[in-house]
Simulated scan of single mutants.
Amino acid sequence: MTKNRRISLYIYCKVGGSWKYRKAPERLKDLTDGSSYVLMWYQGEDANGKPRKRTLNVGKLVDLAKIEIAKKKAELLNRIVDGKEPPEPEQLIVAGPQKVVHTVKDAIEKFLGECQDRCGQDGYGFAKRSLIVYRRSLAYLREFGGETPLVSLDEQFFKTYRRWLREHPKKISDRSCHNILLTANTMARTNGITAGKKVLAEMSFPPKPCHPYSAEELRMFFAVCSPHEALVYKFFLLSGGREQEVANTEIRDLHFGKNVLHISPKPERGFRLKSKKGSAALGRKVPLPSAFMLQLQEHCKGKKPHDLVFPNRQGGIEGHFLRECQSVAKRAGLTGFELHRFRKTFATQMHEGGRVGSADPKLVGAYRSGYHPYLLRRAGLGG
């Protein structure tokens, strides 16, 4: 039986540039709210027969700390029956060392590790792209207060963090500040801390407009494109595909006999459709103009069904569509060109043409046969 049953109260504070535990004064009435209080006691024995130290974070309120001390004393006294302590309950032993989370930095490492474990090999589960964003966002939190005790994450901490983000040398926008703080709040909630919710509710930012390209902008853009560049960005324009959807399009997705593109997930490439569940996760079919499909058919000659339509120089996923798009726009003397604006243009013109959600077979037939007045022809580019 463990002889030392004394419960001690410690304060987790910064001493000489590092965070340490300091024993609290004997007289509890000398304590003040705001410090991070931790209970320490010995209970049971370790594998070597030595007393096992236990700790319990009890928050930052003195009254709460007093209550927890009394509860823990009563609990330990009730464990002694006829002068003997009952055996410790069996515990689940997890392979590998288990790091105790004390600071914000520890919590970030644990959170990112759990997100990493949830990432699937086939692109499902937790999205790898989200993991990259989480790492980038939480790097700011680590820079701001990585050594801060986790129990100190209260509303004032999040308000100070928000002010620090807004005054950051990188000139972080209001939208980015909100998203970075949202990630920090998500991490905190996994540790039972909800103090950031109110601070997030106080934040706002202007909506991000996404205007479709005008016919003149498209004409100027495609006028300076090389044949390959024109084929790539017409594909974005006519399919309404997102960047990763276009990058992962394979030859087998092009149904030349029907003039249809099948945008589908590629588990073998670790690619899934964005935010799609159920039957929508299987993909969607987009009709393409027949004249453009003939150009694609010529481009795809000699390629195998699982080859990418627009690979990089090594035959893998192309990751520089945006950079090349902006390079073309610069040559044309244009600014503000983004890949997503091609998708916006596609949706806007299809809506104006009455084709979104339309089941009229005449319209669908005309579209598949190459009738595309609101995009290429208005820009003077032909089919």
Rank of each mutant, 00 (worst) to 15 (best):
C325R: 07
K303Y: 03
R252M: 08
K274T: 13
R269T: 00
I263H: 10
C300A: 10
Y233M: 06
G257F: 01
A280C: 00
R269F: 02
M293Y: 06
D307I: 08
S264R: 15
L334P: 12
A291K: 12
P289R: 07
K276V: 00
N312F: 11
K277G: 07
V232Y: 02
R313C: 09
H255I: 10
I251D: 01
K304W: 00
I251L: 14
P289L: 08
P305S: 03
P267H: 08
L288G: 00
P267G: 05
F256K: 10
K274A: 15
H320R: 14
L254T: 03
H262A: 14
F236Q: 04
K277L: 04
N248V: 01
L282V: 01
E298N: 10
P311D: 06
F256Y: 04
S279R: 14
E243P: 01
P289Q: 07
K234E: 04
L308D: 00
G336H: 08
R331P: 04
F321K: 03
L273F: 11
L308F: 13
E298G: 04
V232K: 02
L294N: 10
S279H: 13
P305Q: 03
K266Y: 05
A280K: 10
S327K: 15
I317A: 05
L273I: 05
K234H: 09
P267R: 06
V246Y: 06
H306C: 10
K277F: 03
G302R: 13
L296I: 04
N312E: 08
G336R: 08
R323G: 04
K285R: 11
A329G: 12
R272C: 06
H255Y: 09
A230F: 02
V232H: 03
H299D: 03
C300S: 05
S275N: 14
L296V: 04
E298K: 14
N259P: 02
F236R: 07
K266W: 01
L231Q: 11
K304G: 03
E250G: 08
E338L: 15
V286R: 03
